[in-house]
């Protein structure tokens, strides 16, 4: 899972597989962080906000 783990090899299989994993995790992490930070800012600015079409 990490380059410092015993089984890690810098080959194509590891780079593609783990690349995909970390790519997905990064998107999820960044997305959540964005939502939380924006929610904090919105709350501080006392925005009304509606739920729109969902």
């Amino acid at each position: 899972m990490f380059p410092f783990v015993f089984e890690w090899v810098w080959d194509m299989s590891h780079m593609v597989f783990m690349g995909g994993l970390w790519y997905a995790l990064t998107i999820m992490g960044l997305g959540l962080t964005y939502c939380i930070i924006k929610a904090l800012i919105d709350t501080r600015q006392k925005k009304g906000g509606t739920h729109g079409g969902h």
Binding site: I27, M28, G31, Y34, C35, I36, K38, A39, L40, D42, T43, K46, K47, G49, T50, H51, G52, H54
Partner: peptide
């Protein structure tokens, strides 16, 4: 308010998730 905004923001970028 915070949870309301959080829910709203998550809906906004739901396509990414």
């Amino acid at each position: 308010p915070f949870l309301h905004h959080l829910s709203h923001n998550m809906h906004e970028i739901m396509a990414v998730f």
